[in-house]
Write a protein that binds this DNA or RNA. Structure first.
Lengths: 224, 224
DNA sequence: GTCTATATGCCGATAGAC
DNA sequence: GTCTATCGGCATATAGAC
């Protein structure tokens, strides 16, 4: 019930102690939203975890909607920045497999390694009030289109077989990546290995190589 | 806060008008849980949508926990039955691509075509009280292991390259499938086509075919 | 900036009339 | 089987002291 236009504090405000409180509130909110869901996380719970009282939150934010709105925003921005930065560090003629491995690992790293904002975004997006959700769809869409652009460039260079619907491919890939929040266990296996396996699946498929090698020369495939 | 042992009504009860009310409550609850999330769906809202009053729900169920518990249960059972039934109708020597297409299409059909229970399960599982979640993990695990068994059998027959971690593959596949609840638009494209594209991605990958064919037309796999 | 105190309303659940 | 009435509790949000 907010539709607040303002969002960011002034630069001056970020220098006062308020900035740390404000950030602590956002950090805590992201963690609790991820763990408990949106509706089940009360402002009292957020305040308690920050060693504050519920009423004090309203000095920094106008409403619960505004808090969750910023949490969602930061979540997408963080994974977007991480992936873009990693991909831009690649050699410009990196092949399909290398590009996928790099982008997938960056996305998964932002998602699984101590980033409550990113995983909160995925888990609570469908639970927030519809006006909050609507105002964040464009940022999500930008990120989707970034991936689509990546794949389109690879397709033009002949690294992806023609006829593939790349939008749908991106959605499948997002699903495989984002679903890891439901099962990934850090103790069982490293993240780069998992990223490699997904990149391999999407590049080469499950089917055994027929005769000639395909993309990854490294592994020997003898079944004798 | 329930830990209720009993669950199903007696056969006699299902013959009275109570059965229809009971089923209407479950149907409505599944729809609202899917749309709004678990915590945001009140018993009053469920009752309203059933043209009842909130107190009347307690004739059929002991608690909100019990309602959501049954909704979750039905959701997994429904998709499990759909997939198992479809796969059992396959020829026993169906190849990887055909098996995947069949199972994926069945799973997506249960998920996307008018089955609130199935999509509610996916969306609210992470939001329900932890004791409810715990009591349904075994059913989910059965379904995962069914898929893993499918792939293991195919791997033994040489249809899946060795060295692949099939548990992880199943999780990636589940992610790609379950994420479709977030973006699938029935008007844009048919479900069989989408299932085919995912099956193709997982079978052959994005990489263009090098020289020889890979899986599709060649069915010289016969061991009759 | 953070506190206490409070307004207002919906929540899950129960009791008992019909 | 469904209703009305109600309990105690917790929700978001506000007002004003310090």
């Amino acid at each position: 019930m907010s539709t607040v236009p303002k969002r960011k504090p002034t630069r001056a405000a970020t220098q006062s102690t308020g900035a740390t409180s404000r950030q602590a509130i956002l950090d805590t909110a992201a963690r609790l939203f991820r763990q408990e869901g949106y509706a089940a996380t009360s402002l009292r719970a957020i305040a308690d975890a920050c060693d504050m009282k519920a009423g004090s939150l309203y000095y920094h934010f106008d409403s619960k909607d505004q808090i969750v709105s910023e949490v969602l925003d930061i979540g997408v921005q963080r994974v977007f920045d991480t992936v873009r930065c990693a991909v831009e560090a690649l050699s410009p003629d990196a092949d399909l497999r290398a590009t996928l491995q790099c982008a997938i690992e960056a996305h998964l790293s932002a998602l699984l390694h101590a980033h409550d904002f990113t995983s909160a975004n995925i888990r609570i997006f469908g639970q927030v009030p519809s006006d909050v959700r609507a105002s964040h769809k464009s940022l999500r869409r930008s990120y989707e289109q970034y991936w689509q652009g990546l794949l389109t460039a690879l397709q033009r260079r002949g690294e992806i077989r023609s006829g593939t619907d790349l939008q749908r491919t991106v959605f499948f890939l997002f699903g495989a990546m984002n679903w890891t929040t439901e099962w990934y266990d850090q103790k069982k296996s490293g993240l780069p290995a998992m990223a490699g396996e997904l990149a391999d699946l999407v590049t080469n498929g499950l089917c055994p190589k027929p005769a000639a090698r395909r993309s990854r020369p490294a592994v020997k495939q003898g079944k004798a």
